[in-house]
Design a protein around this nucleic acid. Structure first.
Lengths: 243, 243
DNA sequence: CGACAACTTGACGGGCGTCAACCGGAGTGG
DNA sequence: CCACTCCGGTTGACGCCCGTCAAGTTGTCG
């Protein structure tokens, strides 16, 4: 572990602190975790579906997603991730990866051997609770995505994806939900919403024309949050305030 | 707790045993849990979205589902449940319910106060691991459903739902995956697959005509498993062998 | 300045939703 | 014991939302 690596877990530790109350002893346990920080290019795979896993990875900087691929070639993104997110907590207790994890942008990723993280969870009930809570919130977000993809029309789906991204950015302390830069292409938004890139483009334009957002390249400004909330059918309860 | 209530947790304890290795001490802890078993009519709500929760419930007999409702009135079922399943483990650590839990058939439901279950999890690392693993498998199933609803056509989706139900029935020791009785209506299948009841009906007929299944009322016989697996794009890895 | 990825926009078609009618079985009450 | 009701299932006709295809534009990076 290099000197600057000690800083790498700071956003992760902050997130756990939001998920539960950590004592100084807990924070010391986290700080003592053996981590390896590696750079990852945009589009690099961090975990491959079907592969056995020996490490857990945490996103230090940059953006990532998790996805699965159907037999017909369709790809479905099942979640987006921000700095501080654990990218494969499930592999702490499940031996085989059931989906892929891939960066969206150039990123820094901290790798922790599974046994080390498991040991910390066993030693600190507070950390174990925070991790468990994190995976439960993950699951809650998946449920909302099933609803989004299954029962909302294309315009709502697209708007919902934008609202969630804005809300999670803010919750993670990454900046204002009013205006932000999207890290993903329209094709990636399409893969997350179960649409095509062409139709995502049409929906973004529609949101712009009706005055809900403005766009300039990938920079989004949410002009009318109330209207967006209404279009998207967005109720942040499912984020449980800390995602 | 009445005398016959002691038997109520048996399928649940068996399921935890499949998720991890429980010692006799662990089993004693489970057996000592204070439970209340109540009958529930078909269609009864066990948990309401938005409500604070004080108890966890476990399905003893019968079938249930979890679902969310969109602003446009569309309803999305996000999971089906079999005897032995925990219906709202997430509420052990999350204070507000983000979805509804409802029975599909007449059922028996065991209720456990949250603090009691939490205490057992704190006392036994094996039980805590098994519960955590259960919620991770839950999340894995949600991911597969996002893929199913987002990227597969109606015929595959319907077939996938049947394959999953058959596989989970078998894993839970509830009988053969070759032939079984569906506990849900075609409208409920539609709400789970993001389709309409009319189109589910068309797809079931299509599966029957091409010789993949036969039907007699709600009794399904999977005639050609290989073909069904192929149609459904069904790979049970995501069930992690114990759901 | 050429190449390429991402984005944009229009035309067209199909899969699935919608509407509507009918059937069949189970429960209910006279 | 039979008529009535109701829910779930079945089937056809029709239409729309979104996928597909195709052409063009823009910005970026070598």
């Amino acid at each position: 572990m290099k000197a600057n690596d000690r800083e790498a877990l700071a956003p992760f530790a902050r997130k756990l602190g939001r998920l539960g109350t950590l004592t100084p002893a807990d924070e010391a346990l986290l700080a003592a975790l053996p981590i390896t920080v590696r750079e990852a290019a945009a589009g690099q795979y961090l975990v491959r579906e079907g592969a056995p896993t020996t490490e857990c990875c945490i996103l230090v900087s940059g953006y990532a997603c998790r996805h699965k691929v159907a037999a017909n070639g369709g790809r479905q993104i099942v979640s987006f991730h921000l700095p501080g997110d654990i990218l494969d907590l499930q592999h702490l207790l499940l031996p085989i990866a059931d989906h892929n994890v891939q960066t969206l942008t150039e990123s820094l990723v901290a790798w922790i051997p599974k046994p080390a993280l498991k040991r910390v969870a066993d030693e600190s009930a507070a950390i174990a609770d925070a991790l468990w809570r994190d995976s439960l919130i993950d699951a809650s977000i998946f449920r909302e995505w099933v609803l989004n993809v299954g029962r909302r029309d294309a315009r709502s789906r697209t708007a919902h994806m934008l609202c969630e991204f804005a809300a999670r950015r803010e919750a993670a302390g990454l900046g204002s939900p009013e205006e932000f830069e999207l890290p993903m292409t329209q094709e990636q938004i399409a893969d997350a919403t179960g649409l095509t890139a062409v139709h995502v483009n049409r929906m973004l334009r529609a949101l712009e024309i009706e005055g809900a957002i403005t766009r300039e390249r990938r920079r989004i400004r949410i002009v009318d949050w109330d209207r967006m909330r209404w279009i998207a059918d967005f109720d942040p309860v499912y984020l449980h305030a800390a995602a």
